[in-house]
Computed example of a mutant assay.
Amino acid sequence: MNLLKDTIKEIILSEKSKSEKLQSICDFLEAQISYYDWVGFYFRNGNKEELKLAEYTGEPTEHTIIPFGKGICGQVAVSNENFVVQDVSEQDNYISCGWKVKSEIVIPIFVGGENIGQIDIDSHTANPFTNQDEELLEFVCSKVATLF
């Protein structure tokens, strides 16, 4: 876990652009954690009550804009709380990104106390996420927040 966090710190402190850093984080997490099959960032779309897809790794998604309150990501934009879904089939308010997706974890990113976006992880494995995943992704989000 500490090695993962150290690499995230290195990416954040690198000379890359913000976009390149976010893409590197997506690529790194997807490559290092076997059950992270799609890793992406969504950010608030200006002053609109919606999220806009930014950098991601994994299969393309048509969900590039997500209204607040819709799906797991949209719910996190409203609740400002982590949302771990071990089995997406049990969620009524779920937006499917693909038939392979079995579970999802979404962690908000706060800057100055404001929810500006989130990291979204989809897994093709049911029930894979642990407290360690939440802790790692909260760390990632705290570091990403320093870019804004």
Rank of each mutant, 00 (worst) to 15 (best):
M1H: 11
M1G: 14
N2G: 12
K5D: 02
D6R: 15
D6E: 15
T7N: 15
I8Y: 09
I8G: 06
K9R: 15
K9Y: 14
E10A: 14
I11Y: 05
I12E: 07
I12V: 14
I12H: 07
I12P: 01
I12R: 05
S14F: 08
K16G: 05
S17W: 08
K18G: 10
S19I: 10
E20Q: 13
E20G: 08
L22D: 07
Q23Y: 06
Q23D: 06
I25Q: 05
L29Y: 04
A31P: 04
S34F: 07
Y35K: 04
Y36S: 04
Y36D: 04
D37N: 14
G40W: 08
G40S: 11
Y42W: 03
F43W: 08
R44V: 15
R44F: 10
R44T: 12
R44Y: 11
N47D: 12
K48S: 14
E49M: 13
E50N: 11
E50F: 11
E50I: 09
E50D: 14
L51T: 03
K52N: 13
K52G: 09
A54H: 13
Y56G: 09
T57D: 12
T57E: 13
E59P: 00
E62A: 14
H63L: 11
T64Y: 05
T64G: 04
I65W: 07
I65C: 03
I66Q: 02
P67M: 13
F68E: 05
K70N: 10
I72V: 09
I72R: 02
Q75D: 09
Q75A: 08
V76R: 00
V76A: 04
A77C: 07
A77I: 04
V78Y: 04
S79T: 14
N80E: 09
V84M: 05
V84A: 01
V85L: 00
Q86S: 03
D87E: 12
D87N: 15
E90R: 09
Q91N: 05
D92L: 06
D92K: 07
I95S: 00
S96F: 01
C97Y: 01
G98P: 03
W99I: 14
V101G: 03
V101W: 05
V101A: 07
K102P: 00
K102Q: 07
K102D: 02
S103P: 12
E104G: 03
I105P: 05
P108M: 10
I109L: 13
F110M: 13
V111N: 12
V111Q: 08
G112N: 15
G113P: 13
E114G: 14
E114C: 15
N115V: 11
I116H: 08
S123C: 02
A126K: 14
P128G: 03
P128A: 01
P128V: 01
E134W: 05
E134M: 11
L136D: 00
L136A: 02
V140A: 00
K143L: 07
V144W: 06
A145M: 04
T146C: 02
T146G: 00
L147S: 11
L147W: 04
